[in-house]
Design a binder for these strands. Structure first.
Lengths: 156, 156
DNA sequence: CCAATCATTGGGCAACCTGCCCAGTCAGAT
DNA sequence: ATCTGACTGGGCAGGTTGCCCAATGATTGG
């Protein structure tokens, strides 16, 4: 399940230049094409690489405002709340957590004013007792995985 | 900047089957190949599509534990803290926010025990006054963008 | 209303890559 | 010693890409 150095280099290369083909990769990495192909197949069936879907920027889509909402749920309403939130397009992800709240969700909106609409839609649901929202001002470290891949590839 | 229906269908198709080529897409969408190519180029230079990097699963890499940490920062130490957190591979993203805390970051770790090490490393920095961590138990809605793309493609 | 501009179409071309196959080598495990 | 699995290097047909072109709407500004 863990990845070795070559796997790491493949992922790194793909992350930097997603367009490179298997043949070009094999040249850059100094291994045979079949090797890269086999590694890639393995990484994907492993689940290490989930896919190569397009990374879409919500801001460019007209949703420049991001926020995180911590939700407290009425006991036993968890499933209903999950189903509710899954139907809201502006809910980009949802986690159930330990700690202060019961759930944490990432929201986007067209503007700060629009965020109010989104929040109303999110919390306007019976099972949600309380919500506390933190609006994102800056994103100094965008979602990344490379450093972790490097660490995982070295440590094995 | 906004996307139209055809853009939406292109993104949707790419999200479902990242391996399809431009030619196959043009067949499926019933438009000329050049059109799909032009749209794709535009979507990428627009920044709507950031790229097609591999989506790596931290769990498959040996980091099955995810947590969110809310940090309170000593006044004026923001830049230092950002730089510090950027050097920690287990910090997958970092936001500065309004509200209770000053920053919110997503962490991963090899285990709950390992999470302690990560947190120590994260908060073991002078500018951080206080940290409150929420461990993710479940992820009912994994990071997604499709519903938003559909909405954006319809609304324009 | 006309002209200009832009997106789209349909076609063609050479170069390239992919998927698939094979045999041979090599190292580690049994 | 034998076997298994990974890697190599090679070949092949088919499909795709990147690039070009001329022609056709559709939209916009004059």
């Amino acid at each position: 399940m863990a990845i070795d150095h070559l796997d790491g280099r493949i992922i790194l290369l793909l992350a930097r230049e997603p367009r490179v083909g298997v043949l070009e990769m094999s040249r850059r990495l100094g291994v045979a094409r079949g090797t890269v192909q086999a590694r890639l197949d393995r990484l994907q069936s492993n689940g290490v690489i989930r896919g190569f879907g397009p990374q879409v920027d919500p801001a460019a889509l007209g949703y420049p405002v991001t926020a995180f909402a911590t939700l407290q749920i009425r006991q036993g309403q968890g499933a209903d709340v999950r189903a509710h939130l899954a139907t809201v397009p502006e809910v980009l992800e949802l986690h159930t957590t330990t700690g202060t709240g019961d759930m944490l969700c990432r929201l986007v909106a067209r503007s700060n004013a629009d965020l109010q609409r989104v929040i109303d839609r999110v919390v306007g649901f019976d099972g949600i007792v309380r919500a506390s929202t933190a609006i994102v001002m800056e994103n100094p470290v965008p979602l990344r995985i490379i450093p972790l891949v490097e660490q995982a590839a070295l440590g094995e």
